[in-house]
Every structure is written in structure tokens, then in C-alpha cells.
Computed example of a mutant assay.
Amino acid sequence: MFIHYKNKFPELSKLWDTYEGFQEKIHLPAKHVLLREGETAKYYYYIQKGVVRAYLRTNTGEEKTVQFFFETDGLSSFESFMRAVPSAFYVETLEPTEVTRLPKEKVLELFERLKASPSFMDMVIYIFSDRQIHYMNEFVSFLKDSPTERFENLIRERPHILQRVPQHYIASYLGVSSVHLSRIKAKLAGKH
């Protein structure tokens, strides 16, 4: 959501630090579900160490990974968190993970305090445009690029995902089966 931008905006970092007493540090095992589809998000999470994924289940029960989160990323099911509606997503750890979580009421309080900052609008515009650009690029790539092109983009732009995320989740993220992803990898390996 926004705290992972704290290094870009010093006042955001200072405010986050003033909420240290309300932040709960949690050590979680792999495959721990932080939020289930249908639940209402009550916490904002900041990842200290580990990998988390957001996914949804299709009507046929198939899991579709929509995003991965790593160290220094912040997350919640944004719509659920902000509008108090049921989450469309599951949020789950993929490896042993350490997070700091802040309850919703404290996050909203922090927002209110941020509004007093002279650079508040700059922060809002930067953060939301950055996220919008990221999601729009993902959406356009999914519509325009072949699975092989999407995999090549992943190799080029976010190789850390390939190093830390199991192949079947990467396949789900790319919209292909694990078998198809294996074929793509073999084909690309044959080129080099």
C-alpha cells in the first residue's frame, strides 16, 4: 500500500516510526494464510523477511496468483482494507516470513496525520501513480504478450521471483500450467 515508500519520503518514515508501539512483529511459517477470500482486511503488513503471494480461486477452484511481495514491501487487500468489504484475494506466505502488522485504525490515524504534511499530495500522487503504472503494465502484458514473452519479461525485470518462488506459482502468475512453463524454459534454454 504505502509504507514501502518510506525511504522515498522522510516524513512518512518518521511517522511510521512513531507508531512502533502499535506495530506487532510476527514470525510466520511457510504456507500461512494472512487473509482469506471473503474476510475483511483488518491489518496492513510490512514484510521484514520472506515472500508472500496474493491469489484468488476461480469458479472451478483453480488458484491464480496475482502478485508476489518481498522484503520491504507493504500489503493488504486494498479494497477490503479501505472499504471494509470482503477480500477477493487470499494472502499467503511462501516461505518462513517475518512481518510487522499495524491495525487498520492505526493506519487510518497515520493517514490523518500525514494529511498535515506539506508534501502529502506529492506522496499520494507518486504512490498511487506508481502502483497504477505497475498494474497497468502487468495488465497490458497479460493481454498483449505471449506466455514466453511474459516469462522473458520476468527474467529481465524481476529475476528474484524466479530464485525464490516455486515454479507452479510462477506458472499460475504467468497464466500457464507448470508443464507449459517447463516447455517455455526448455525452449529458451535451447536458444542460449
Rank of each mutant, 00 (worst) to 15 (best):
M1W: 10
I3H: 10
Y5S: 11
K6C: 00
N7Q: 14
S13G: 14
K14Q: 15
D17N: 15
F22A: 12
F22E: 11
E24D: 05
I26N: 02
L28E: 02
L28W: 08
L28N: 04
P29N: 09
A30Y: 08
E37V: 06
T40V: 15
Y43W: 15
Y45P: 04
G50Q: 03
V51R: 06
A54V: 00
A54G: 04
Y55A: 09
R57K: 15
E63I: 08
T65N: 04
V66R: 06
V66N: 10
G74W: 09
L75V: 12
S76C: 14
S77G: 13
F78A: 12
S80Y: 00
F81G: 00
M82K: 14
A84G: 06
A88D: 09
Y90P: 08
L94F: 07
T100V: 14
R101L: 11
R101W: 10
R101H: 10
L102H: 01
P103W: 03
K104Y: 08
E105H: 10
K106M: 04
V107R: 01
V107I: 13
L108I: 03
L108R: 09
R113K: 15
R113C: 02
R113Y: 03
R113V: 07
K115W: 08
K115Y: 09
A116E: 12
S119V: 15
S119P: 07
M121P: 03
M123V: 07
M123N: 04
V124P: 06
Y126W: 12
S129Q: 15
Y135M: 03
Y135K: 00
V140R: 05
V140I: 08
V140T: 00
S141M: 10
S141V: 07
L143P: 01
K144D: 07
D145A: 01
D145W: 02
P147R: 13
R150H: 03
R150W: 05
F151L: 13
L154P: 03
L154E: 00
I155P: 07
I155N: 05
P159R: 02
L162D: 09
L162C: 10
V165L: 03
P166F: 00
H168Q: 12
Y169T: 01
L174M: 06
S177N: 02
S177G: 11
S178D: 10
H180F: 03
S182A: 14
H192W: 11
H192I: 08
